[in-house]
Design a protein around this nucleic acid. Sequence first.
RNA 1: GCCGAUGUAGCUCAGCUGGUAGAGCAGCUGAUUCGUAAUCAGCAGGUCAGCGGUUCAAAUCCGCUCAUCGGCUCCA
Length: 638
Amino acid sequence: MSEINITWPDNSRGTFPGGTTIKDAIGSWKPDVLSSTVAAKVDGSPVDLGVRLEKDAVVEPIDVATKEGLGILRHSTSHVMAQAVQDTFPGAKVTIGPSIEEGFYYDFECETTFTPEDLQKIEKRMQEITATDSTFSRREISREEAVALFKEKGESYKVELINDLPPDVETVSLYSQGGYVDLCRGPHLPSTQMIKAFTLLKVAGAYWRGDEHNKMLQRIYGTCFATQEALDDYLRMIEEAKKRDHRRLGRELDLFQLNDEAGPGLIIFHPKGMMLRYIIEEWERKEHLKRGYDMVMGPQILKVDLWKRSGHFDHYRENMYFTEVDEQGYGIKPMNCLAHMLIYKSKIRSYRDLPLRYFELGTVHRHEKTGVLHGLLRARQFTQDDAHILCTPDQLNSEILAIADFVAYAMKIFGFEYEVELSTRPENSIGSDADWDLATSALEGALKDSRMVYEINEGDGAFYGPKIDFKIKDALKRKWQCATIQCDFTLPERFDLSYIGSDGEKHRPVMLHRVILGAIERFMGVLIEHHAGAFPVWLSPVQASILTVTEKHIPHGEKVYQQLLDAGVRVEKSFSNEKLGYKIREAQMQKTPYMLVIGDREMAEDAVSPRQRDGNNLGSMSVTDFINIIQERNRNYQ
RNA sequence: GCCGAUGUAGCUCAGCUGGUAGAGCAGCUGAUUCGUAAUCAGCAGGUCAGCGGUUCAAAUCCGCUCAUCGGCUCCA
């Protein structure tokens, strides 16, 4: 019998008889590793532990604790769930069931709708299956055989999946465990017994193949971890994250409300929410002016004819609100670009004027579908920190780089990590292929020049041009688009924008649409969750609260209040007839950064004693010293 | 828009198989004058989301509508 050489990750080598399974090989290399190994990479490709090694190879065990290993564990768990669903609900058809970032799901078509009690039943059945030590076994069959097999089982979705494989695919792989067979690429766990800590989380609707024209399936979400402790930690983390929900904190901290009577998706800012917004907006104005932008402002409604000319009427109408006055139709703006173009067109422009950067904190209305509204993160009226840059094609690259730089700076100031995506031409779009290519390569070129890591999002661009999106995450790690840079050759064309070049001829400028924070509302929503409502001092709507110990300290409290107000500190009085402990608790729950205690001692010394919200007591200090602390933090964005 | 769940006082929630609503916190009034996360007592708060139906009787059962929540699709 021939022998093979295996190279392990630590570069040690072992010699085994040909045909040894990976499992046996690992078992003899390091037996203790085997119990947490879900699969292995052979020469870089992930495969099952049951695979027999026939030639020399580099073998790397995949541990369940790694991201990849956890993915395999979860994927196998989704197969077990599919089995449990079909055992519990005969006639349920399976579709697809991948592992995802925080767990797994499987989509089913089933006559009966799954209730939360049904999830318990399914989970119970899964426990029975995972207790039995069924092996996951792989086999490959021809696609014809596979089609016949799944047809016979009545699994029409699997048949569709196989039929849609590229023509050069001749065989497909099947995995089975405990009599349940599924079409799958693998790899999978060696046995169901490795599945120890899982739970089903929720049922939701999901369209077959993510297309809303298709049938809606029932998706069951679940998650699975290597150990019960890890699962418990995860569930606890989810509970903690719910406490950071901006909608909850919005009420608790009295920042804003969403009110049925006003209308869904319409935000009403309360004094503290408006203060936070004001601070952000002032920061925006200052930073834009520093970067050579001009502030402008357009009207809320513009004649319908203008929206027809821009293409919005044909491509965006279902998201727009309309009104009619004096038999004249108006569209309420869903975007700010039209007025900016009219500003550009108000006189003849020279190449010497370019780039022109028009900035507007532009409030827009979009008729979002009811099911997508989500507090501040998805509203029907919101304000974008919008700008339109009109430049020559030569200036495109440096302008895009400058915007990317601005975004990076903003994210640093506000403390966010972000992900970058390049979105390309969608189906419902306007403009020539040549312009789209030019625009797309301009964006991609800038991304490469700035060495940003990015993903490509095919067909996800705006109807008038491709875009770079920057996404940040909320408390539950859901991604929200904030900054975006969109490159547009089409609107300048439609509005016949031009500039006179150095050659004395007319040329067409390029337009960049861009936002930095995105929508102020959405950004605030993510910001609230990011800080769990405990904003850094520079952003806190109330920076300090003055807490008197007894009634007789009120006059000194008033004096301090006035001094702080004069110095521009955002300060609040807590002079009520309550015990100090009560007032501290109140301020603490409002997450006020500083509580200034005023009692006999402070009165005698003409001082304040700041207590930080982390519980740290700074001791007695003069009001001036305290003002310096606040101003220092304002300056440094802390 | 689609699938599912939910909707009781300002907030968090009780209210079983139908017999016309209850707690804690918040609020108000009074007492207390107090030193780093809740002082005590009293009072007041509800068209049980809305509309319609079944019933002698509906917060409770049924239907429709609206809104919210979790997903899907879409999006800043």
